[in-house]
Simulated scan of single mutants.
Amino acid sequence: MPWQAGVSLLVLVCAGLLAHRYWPLIEEGAGRLAVADRGWLLVAAAATLAAWACSALAQQGAVPEPLPPGRLVAVQFAASSANQVLPAGLGASAVNLRFLNRCGLSVARSATALAVKACAGTVARGCLIAGLALACPGALRLPRMPTAARTVAVWTVAVVVVAVGGALLAGRLRRAVRHVLRDVRAVHELPARAAALWGGSLACAALHAAVVIAVTQAIGLPLAPARVALAYLVACSAAVLLPTPGGLGSMEAALALALTLAGAPGGAAASTVLGYRLLTVWLPLVPGLLTLGVLIRRRVL
Rank of each mutant, 00 (worst) to 15 (best):
121 G>Q: 13
121 G>R: 07
121 G>L: 14
124 A>V: 03
124 A>I: 05
126 G>F: 11
126 G>L: 10
130 A>T: 15
131 G>C: 08
133 A>P: 07
133 A>V: 04
135 A>I: 02
136 C>S: 09
137 P>V: 06
138 G>E: 09
138 G>Y: 10
139 A>M: 02
141 R>L: 11
145 M>E: 09
146 P>L: 10
150 R>M: 07
151 T>L: 11
151 T>A: 13
152 V>S: 11
152 V>R: 02
152 V>Q: 02
152 V>D: 13
154 V>R: 12
155 W>N: 04
156 T>S: 15
157 V>G: 07
158 A>M: 11
158 A>F: 08
159 V>A: 15
160 V>E: 10
161 V>Q: 13
164 V>C: 13
164 V>I: 07
165 G>T: 02
166 G>H: 05
167 A>N: 05
170 A>Q: 14
170 A>P: 04
172 R>S: 15
173 L>Q: 07
174 R>L: 05
175 R>K: 09
176 A>Q: 13
176 A>H: 04
177 V>H: 07
178 R>C: 12
178 R>N: 01
182 R>N: 08
184 V>E: 00
185 R>C: 04
187 V>E: 04
187 V>K: 00
189 E>F: 00
189 E>S: 12
189 E>H: 12
190 L>H: 12
191 P>L: 09
191 P>I: 07
191 P>Y: 11
192 A>D: 09
192 A>H: 11
192 A>E: 12
195 A>H: 05
197 L>G: 01
197 L>P: 03
197 L>T: 11
